[in-house]
């Protein structure tokens, strides 16, 4: 039992990271109806920025993270304004040109990070310190507990933002129907910029929660697919879904890896991949997403 619990906790720890990245995916999807394939690489790049504040300027860890989020917000907003908008304006309802731009961003960040900061992996501190607590004979480490708490805070902040602020309401308006929103005077462009900015800023949290494995340009290549699986399962337009989906993906893949020899630790990605396929086949809107209505 305690062994099961141990791997359950491990799965929660992994899942919390997937969920954090999935939230960033969801924010952009809500705002624009698009998947940002560069989400992981942007988070990696932002984590390097945090590392720059932390290691380069010698700031304490959390202020570095906050500064990194601010810079990333600006970066995300600028990317939307300068690189995404010109393309999406031209493309109209066709998502593909923008998808290709995000793949260009994927390559660009992947190449830019080592060019700026070197290929050697950087030591990055554990956000919540090392150590663990015992629960029913299994241990759960501070990193997992901290990431889970951070995740809860994120969902709360996003809930308040979307439900209780003007900006949030406007963003929801744009997401559900941008033409109508524009008609009632919502500055659609600004909302899209904010969406990208928020997504980039929250992505930082995923990066810094992972980076204690060693920060290099490959940091988020692994988590990205799991995060997409999480967002697929939870529903691409639901932050809560991203959290639940992330935790389920984390726990299920770790338990399968440990208990099912046919999967094992070297093929954990397979269940995540199959999950994406099955969800798209059976319930494409995911657990918490709204079924999509296509307009002619």
């Amino acid at each position: 039992m305690s062994e099961f619990l141990q791997f359950f906790f491990l799965g929660l720890g992994r899942g919390a990271i997937y969920a954090t990245l999935a939230i960033a995916v969801v924010i952009i999807f809500r705002a624009t109806g698009l998947l940002n394939f560069a989400q992981g690489q942007m988070a990696m790049f932002s984590t390097f920025i945090v590392w720059g504040f932390y290691d380069g300027f010698g700031l304490p860890l959390w202020p570095s993270v906050l500064l990194g989020m601010v810079v990333s917000f600006l970066m995300g907003a600028l990317i939307e304004r300068l690189l995404i908008r010109p393309v999406s304006d031209k493309a109209g309802h066709n998502p593909l040109p923008v998808v290709i731009v995000t793949i260009g961003l994927f390559l660009g960040f992947q190449a830019l990070a080592p060019w700026l900061w070197g290929e050697t992996a950087k030591p990055f501190p554990q956000l919540f310190g090392s150590g663990s607590v015992e629960i029913f004979g299994a241990s759960i480490d501070y990193q997992t507990l901290g990431t889970l708490a951070m995740l809860a805070a994120e969902v709360l902040v996003l809930y308040l933002l979307f439900q209780r602020t003007k900006v949030g309401l406007a963003m929801r308006g744009v997401a559900s129907n941008s033409e109508s929103a524009a008609l009632v005077g919502v500055p659609v462009g600004n909302m899209l910029m904010i969406g990208w900015g928020l997504s980039a800023a929250f992505g930082v949290l995923a990066g810094v929660a992972t980076a204690d494995v060693g920060l290099d340009s490959t940091l988020m290549l692994g988590p990205l697919i799991y995060a997409f699986a999480a967002a697929t399962l939870g529903g691409f337009d639901s932050p809560l879904g991203a959290v639940v989906g992330g935790l389920i993906v984390g726990v299920v893949t770790e338990l399968l890896a440990h208990y099912v020899d046919a999967i094992g630790n070297d093929l954990k990605l397979l269940p995540a991949f199959l999950l994406i396929l099955v969800v798209l086949l059976v319930r494409p809107q995911g657990l918490f997403g709204k079924a999509q209505v296509t307009r002619v």
Binding site: V101, I103, G104, L105, L107, G108, Q110
Partner: peptide
């Protein structure tokens, strides 16, 4: 990769 990425965009 940088050139390819920039080319796509």
């Amino acid at each position: 990769d940088l050139v390819f990425g920039a080319a796509l965009i």
